Simulated assay, not measured.
Amino acid sequence: MIKSFRSIALLEGLSLLALLFFAMPMKYMAGNPIYVKNIGMAHGVLFILYVAFAILIKNEQKWSFKTFIIVCLASIVPFGTFYIEKKYLQNT
């Protein structure tokens, strides 16, 4: 299950970066909102999967509540999931 979570964390982080640094500029500078719709939907699904897997992994890895909150909050910060992967998931 941890390998799946690592993959989801990577994809969720990449989708957030694509949304912020590609789709949003395309919407506001090029007037093309379709990228926000498509990438935003993918990011939303990956975000939900990330949080759901974090809940499942919390018990498996015996994370404290503080660690769990850090892992969840990292999903809303650009590059946050990459930090989580290095700090909490790499040695598992």
Results as ranks from 00 to 15, higher is better:
residue 35 Y to T: 10
residue 35 Y to N: 11
residue 61 Q to I: 08
residue 25 P to D: 09
residue 4 S to M: 13
residue 6 R to E: 08
residue 37 K to G: 15
residue 36 V to W: 10
residue 24 M to A: 12
residue 55 I to C: 14
residue 86 K to L: 13
residue 82 F to G: 04
residue 87 K to R: 08
residue 31 G to D: 10
residue 69 I to D: 00
residue 91 N to I: 09
residue 16 L to K: 03
residue 16 L to A: 10
residue 10 L to A: 09
residue 90 Q to R: 14
residue 82 F to Q: 00
residue 3 K to T: 13
residue 22 F to L: 14
residue 10 L to F: 06
residue 26 M to P: 08
residue 52 A to T: 14
residue 55 I to T: 11
residue 90 Q to I: 13
residue 68 F to H: 02
residue 37 K to D: 15
residue 12 E to W: 03
residue 71 V to F: 04
residue 45 V to C: 03
residue 64 S to V: 11
residue 1 M to N: 06
residue 50 Y to G: 03
residue 85 E to T: 01
residue 69 I to T: 02
residue 8 I to E: 01
residue 63 W to I: 10
residue 1 M to L: 12
residue 71 V to Q: 02
residue 51 V to K: 01
residue 31 G to L: 11
residue 65 F to R: 06
residue 78 P to D: 07
residue 69 I to F: 13
residue 40 G to Q: 12
residue 57 I to L: 01
residue 51 V to M: 11
residue 77 V to N: 08
residue 90 Q to D: 14
residue 63 W to P: 11
residue 70 I to P: 01
residue 83 Y to V: 08
residue 67 T to N: 06
residue 89 L to Q: 07
residue 50 Y to S: 09
residue 16 L to P: 02
residue 12 E to T: 09
residue 2 I to K: 06
residue 77 V to Y: 04
residue 58 K to G: 01
residue 48 I to A: 14
residue 9 A to L: 00
residue 50 Y to A: 06
residue 13 G to A: 11
residue 76 I to N: 06
residue 81 T to H: 05
residue 83 Y to P: 01
residue 6 R to C: 05
residue 30 A to V: 09
residue 80 G to K: 02
residue 57 I to R: 03
residue 92 T to M: 12
residue 34 I to L: 15
residue 91 N to Y: 09
residue 34 I to S: 15
residue 80 G to V: 06
residue 34 I to D: 15
residue 61 Q to C: 11
residue 61 Q to A: 15
residue 63 W to R: 09
residue 73 L to C: 12
residue 22 F to Q: 08
residue 43 H to P: 06
residue 44 G to W: 02
residue 2 I to P: 00
residue 63 W to Q: 06
residue 13 G to R: 05
residue 80 G to R: 06
residue 33 P to A: 12
residue 69 I to E: 01
residue 36 V to K: 09
residue 16 L to R: 03
residue 58 K to M: 07
residue 22 F to D: 09
residue 53 F to I: 01
residue 18 A to H: 03
residue 32 N to M: 15
residue 85 E to D: 14
residue 64 S to L: 03
residue 63 W to C: 07
residue 13 G to L: 08
residue 14 L to M: 08
residue 30 A to C: 05
residue 10 L to W: 06
residue 66 K to E: 14
residue 47 F to Q: 08
residue 82 F to M: 04
residue 82 F to L: 10
residue 39 I to H: 08
residue 26 M to H: 13
residue 9 A to H: 03
residue 15 S to G: 07
residue 12 E to K: 04
residue 39 I to N: 05
residue 52 A to S: 14
